[in-house]
């Protein structure tokens, strides 16, 4: 029994520091720029991940170097930020929320359509574009880590890059938010008319916020695509956006370390819950008529939903946010 629990713990710890968690942390940092600092309700964040990953994969597919493709992916996200911003930033918050989801879905449906198959690979997506990235892997073959928490050289390389990016972007966002630039974003978050009345070009600042957060989201998308060496359209469903939202709110919106801590805790909780349930089922502690192993995946979504609800009701500032500064839940 103890063995089983330790194993579940080890697996959960692996998930909490793994590539998924790093990518979620990046995505949540980007989303936090949008929502936590600027107050933009972006429910289509997944589109930035998709555009970053797809642009990178397509540019490699067209025969260019990966090291050219990555900036292209970021540029793609910046362009999406502008395209998304121009029609939507004049909208009321609730309209904006719906429109951003819609834009995310438009992109997913377009990318998976057979008309685009020549470019995007349609429903099958694109594979094997990150070889150049793994060619420069400094980790030699083998497993790294302590105790049961180990990773192979491939995961180690993606994780190292991922967490390095997390730290770098967090520092970048920290610097920006302490500067007068961040002051304007926060003012827009609270009352954009007040910022306008003081001579701030609110629209321009919102576009910059969308592009910046979007580019960080694109990094997350590229990281996940490298890990899988694949981009597949149905990995970019709207519910992933809500997972990222949950991680962000869990950590605390409008704080620098919030999204990072949120992503780590999010994956630990999800992985340990699933691990415990699966262990319970295989060892017969949970009777099969109650829950079968196939249904454990469904529990993940229910758990995320429940966490999201509970946070919004009881702790909208998350674990590290300041109650006084939280946009939602305190109005």
């Amino acid at each position: 029994m103890i063995d089983v629990l330790l194993k579940v713990f080890a697996d959960s710890a692996r998930a909490a520091i793994g590539v998924q968690a790093a990518a979620y942390a990046l995505a949540a940092i980007g989303l936090n720029v949008h929502f936590g600092f600027t107050g933009l309700i972006n429910f289509g964040h997944i589109a930035f991940l998709a555009v970053g990953a797809y642009t990178t994969a397509i540019v490699v597919d067209l025969g260019f170097s990966l090291w050219l493709a990555i900036p292209a992916g970021l540029l793609g996200a910046v362009i999406l930020g502008m395209l998304l911003g121009i029609p939507t930033l004049r909208l009321r918050a609730d309209y904006l929320a719906i429109t951003t989801i819609a834009v995310g879905e438009i992109i997913r449906v377009m990318v998976r359509s057979s008309a685009m198959e020549g470019l995007t690979g349609g429903v099958f997506g694109l594979q094997g574009f990150a070889d150049e990235f793994f060619d420069v892997n400094p980790f030699s073959r083998g497993n790294y880590g302590v105790w049961d928490i180990t990773f192979n050289e491939r995961s180690m390389w993606v994780m190292t890059v991922g967490w390095a990016l997390v730290v770098l972007t967090a520092l970048l966002v920290h610097a920006l938010m302490r500067a007068p630039f961040g002051r304007v974003l926060k003012a827009i978050r609270e009352d954009e008319d007040a910022a306008r009345a003081l001579g701030k070009n609110v629209f321009a600042f919102k576009i910059r916020s969308l592009c910046l957060g979007g580019a960080i989201g694109a990094l997350a998308g590229i990281l996940l695509a490298f890990e899988a060496q694949a981009v597949v359209p149905d990995r970019y469903l709207p519910q992933t956006t809500f997972f990222i939202w949950t991680a962000m709110i869990l950590g605390g919106t409008g704080s620098i370390k919030g999204p990072i801590a949120g992503a780590i805790i999010f994956w630990f909780v999800v992985a340990s819950t699933e691990g415990l349930l699966r262990a319970g089922i295989t060892h017969g502690w949970i009777p099969d008529w109650l829950l079968s192993s196939q249904e454990v995946a469904a529990v993940r979504f229910m758990l995320v939903g429940a966490i999201l609800m509970a946070l919004m009701v009881w702790r909208p500032q998350g674990l590290f946010g300041k109650r006084e500064e939280v946009l939602i839940g305190a109005r």
Partner: peptide, 24 residues
Amino acid sequence: KALSKMTVIDNLLLGAANQKGEGM
């Protein structure tokens, strides 16, 4: 339209025009 989740001093600092640090 006091920006109630910002400090009083930040409210004022926001007002200054032509701030170089407002560029990204």
